[in-house]
Design a protein around this nucleic acid. Structure first.
Lengths: 152, 152
DNA sequence: CCTTGACTTTGAGTTAACTCAAACCCATAT
DNA sequence: ATATGGGTTTGAGTTAACTCAAAGTCAAGG
């Protein structure tokens, strides 16, 4: 549980070093203390904070919201209620996300069961997938690229 | 259950018209049939397809994967196994996502409970939030903007 | 002394997925 | 006949969140 260099930290949390520095730049992470040579080091407190930030980011809590929370924290007790509400809102958001993912999982599992029972093979018009796929791709001999030509 | 115009469709599924046209352009949706005046209309089959695409997109299945599935479909029975595997992979991905969201929800709920019990207020150094927030923002009198200056 | 390798800063580039703007067409209501 | 409202295409712009490149510093090993 010693202090870590940025490389050690990025290995521990499996995160790009640039991302860590980026979070510091935009203010999600404090100005990190440096060794005599100017290199960053991360102590336990910092690691705990970063770990939390990454956990929430990983679940889709936006950088913007995280930064908002930091700002509120810094304003002290006057923002206790606001902060609590912010956290609750994020929970609500995540619960909604759970639900919509569950719907997709169920849908995909249903489809998979049709594959396993052979129904998809028997009944080519199930959900009209084949027909739709053909409609989509039939006049694509000129190999349309997946992405739009975005900028040249 | 009649055919819908693009406005009606976008209202029904609460999606931007541009997004629907974009999906058609990149090939997630077939070349949609037109009325005599050139306007798109969407029949039941098309609506079902779009509804599924949106459901999966909404849960984080990427446009790229969806397009891959369309391509496989169009190649017929030779790709049955590949398609089944693709669907299973997406389920795995979504299940992982569920788990990581659950971790975040638990973490946030724990924090919220500290707010509700007043512990956060009592113990300002809980998780060193205050201190960290101060470290982050203290020398920010020059009002650093949230986003990086990205391009001028 | 020189090289190597890990770090640094700054600004710019990338990616996915939209989202919009501009210029146009067409049918209907005033 | 003209204004309004809804659609159309094309190419370009936007957004969030990284991610990278270039050029530099520094300490340790040979």
């Amino acid at each position: 549980m010693a202090d870590l260099s940025i490389t050690e930290l990025s290995n521990k949390f499996n995160i790009n070093q640039n991302t860590i520095r980026y979070y510091e730049r935009i203010g999600l992470i404090p100005k990190v203390p440096r060794k005599s040579n100017g290199n960053r080091y991360y102590d336990n407190k910092m690691q705990a904070w970063i770990e939390m930030i990454l956990c929430l980011r990983h679940s889709g809590v936006s950088v913007e919201v995280l930064y908002e929370y930091v700002e509120l924290l810094q304003q002290g007790d006057a923002t206790l209620d606001t902060r609590e509400q912010l956290l609750k809102d994020q929970v609500d958001m995540l619960v909604e996300k759970q639900k919509s993912i569950q719907v997709s999982i169920d849908r995909l599992n249903h489809k998979i069961s049709l594959y396993e029972s052979g129904e998809i093979k028997q009944n080519k018009s199930y959900f009209d997938e084949y027909q739709i796929a053909n409609d989509i791709l039939k006049d694509n001999e000129m190999k349309r690229k997946f992405k739009e030509p975005n900028n040249y």
